[in-house]
Amino acid sequence: MSLSRDTLRGWGFTAPALIWTLAFFVVPFLVMAAMSLATLEGRTLVWGLHADNYRELLEKRYLWRAVVVSLQITLTVTAVSVALAYPLAWIIAFRVPKRWQRLALLLAILPFWTSYVVRSYAWLTVLSKEGVVNQVLLSLHLIAEPITLANTRFATVTGFVHFFTMLLTLTIFANLIQLPPNYRRAAMDLGASAFQTFRHVVLPLTLPGIVTGAFLTFVLCIGDYITPQILGGNTELTVPQVIMVQLGRRADFPLAAALAIVLMGLVTLAYLACARWLRLDRI
């Protein structure tokens, strides 16, 4: 049986993507999964089916605490970023005149143009005791002495929200402008108030954009090392920070791999929770 020309052409077109996925996702994932089941004896890596690393994860308080902290920070960042990005995207889509929309979007994504590390250190300076925020609060007599903002979870969340609000604004904006204006007009003609129109028409139709952006925020935030490391001041540890410790000092690749598998598990759970609304083609 010979393959038809169309089938061959189909394979030809999809082969690069398949090879890419196999080489850069499937194979590395299998290696990482196998590594998570290996163990270190002295400084020697012993391959096998050992559950030691996962057991350690349950036994060592700082390891599972890191999982909890990562989840708490990620969920907070996602919720706050959505709450800020939606009105911003709405204003750009419906309130800003068409000819200014491009400029408004450009301004919204401008922070992406600077280095992520530089931006994090900039936030550290802004939030420090001698920084702009404390100086403004002091000059307005809202506080009597500088308050601690840098090196806290608040600082980590602020750094993340600054970045992810921009990302979410783009995904939600892309969704909002696809919404035919007649839907809103029809709802209003039928007697719906502005809130009812938003609640029963606009929000359900833009939910895929929100969920897609929120999912991307979750994925990028939970795996990020730089922001909590610079802005959090190591006052609490996230999973990527703990992974870096295993690699940097101990070269304990099996435990680091087990932690990475846990991260992937959390991302998978997030995907399953969002799958119903996810429309990655809307990005």
């Binding site: 001698e130 001041g233 006052t235």
Partner: peptide, 18 residues
């Protein structure tokens, strides 16, 4: 302690009065 810092962050903390 207010933070547990790497070299650059520790220098920044001292220099900025954090």
């Amino acid at each position: 302690a207010i933070s547990v810092a790497d070299v650059v962050s520790a220098q920044t903390a001292l220099a900025t009065g954090e």
